[in-house]
Design a protein around this nucleic acid. Structure first.
Lengths: 194, 194
DNA sequence: CGAATTATCGACCAATTCATTCGAAGGCTT
DNA sequence: AAGCCTTCGAATGAATTGGTCGATAATTCG
């Protein structure tokens, strides 16, 4: 009812929850359908395939993350706080993302080349944001960086390193504590402690 | 190597992690084998079947919970604190247990009759513990209960109600807060506020 | 050593699962 | 009632999966 696009959105939300919990492979169309209280075949009226839904979900998730990040840096003033909250929010998001990875790594990751596309675009955006924060911070003498472009890349690489699911495996550890520790390490070499 | 029983234990631990994450159905023998870095068929040297492993895992998990609960009530003195920490630890354990449920509920739960056996024994034990704490608390005028047997059953029923996975579905909510709220409600009618 | 026992593995199988298709049909608008 | 939009049950063919079996290392023991 209502609107086709509206319903597609509903499917994305619902399927997204299941995907994020069980990953691509372990999520069945039956489950997605059941969660939506509809017949399995009905879903094919809105999406071509399971992969198609997955793509929409990942895209949607990426947008959410982007919004979270932009609001995170908007809500604070100083470059240091901007950088802190950006890195913090992004790292926390990996907990969610790692669940997607978990099942994708299973096999033919190359099949999901749309992820590569999203990632590239996303990486460029992120680099620009980081560079900007660093540049501003350097100007205000909060950061001790001479080449913001270069340092931004270094930070991004660090963040990327945290993306591997391995990092999130041990659920027992308190994630917050770990993130804070990394934040400390990351800033120790950046902040200008005059 | 080492010992057959030792290795069975290794399998139980390793498989337990996967089961608790994905549930019975979504966990494959290949995954269990891979996690143990061994061939799938080798596992059948230690266990008869997948169900068999699952049974051992649940049994193991039940023992862990029992230990946690007994140490929880041993570590405090007053009946009120005993009751608080017992209920709290038990409720937190359900988060883990709900994952097992999640996949069992799928279909033929009746096939896992060993769970029924564990449960019954476990329930009896729990009832005895609760009754004891209540009785002691009543004697010390901390609790306002006349029939500890009866009240223990009421508390156990309340706890059981929380076991349904439905309760844990919405991951966003802060579980701790919710548990504390329930604890409050639970005690409001019990504690003797003279 | 060499025989017996213990432990591991790859190849295979039958049963099941799963994504996807398709035609029928319900329901809504005009 | 005609034409669309939407839903669904049944069917299907390919892939997955729990479990088996015989071969064969690896280890123990006389």
């Amino acid at each position: 009812m209502i609107n086709k696009e509206e319903f597609r959105r509903k499917i994305i939300i619902s399927a997204g929850q299941i995907f994020s919990r069980y990953g691509f492979k372990k999520t069945t169309m039956d489950e997605i359908a059941k969660a939506l209280k509809m017949g399995k075949s009905s879903i094919y009226y809105y999406f071509e395939s399971k992969e198609n839904i997955f793509e929409a979900v990942v895209l949607h998730e990426a947008n959410i993350l982007r919004n979270e990040l932009t609001t995170a840096i908007k809500s604070v003033e100083s470059p240091l706080d901007k950088m802190k909250s950006y890195v913090f929010v992004r790292m926390k998001a990996f907990e969610k993302l790692s669940n997607y990875y978990n099942a994708i790594f299973d096999k033919n990751l190359d099949h999901f080349d749309f992820i590569e596309t999203i990632r590239e675009k996303y990486d460029r955006e992120e680099l620009a944001i980081l560079r900007l924060i660093l540049y501003d911070g350097a100007k205000k003498k909060v950061f001790n960086v001479t080449n913001s472009e270069y340092t931004a890349m270094a930070i991004q690489t660090t963040l990327k390193g945290l993306e591997v699911p391995l990092f999130w495996k041990k659920k027992e550890e308190h994630i917050e504590k770990r993130l804070n520790a990394i934040l400390d390490v990351l800033f120790y070499g950046i902040v200008n402690n005059h």
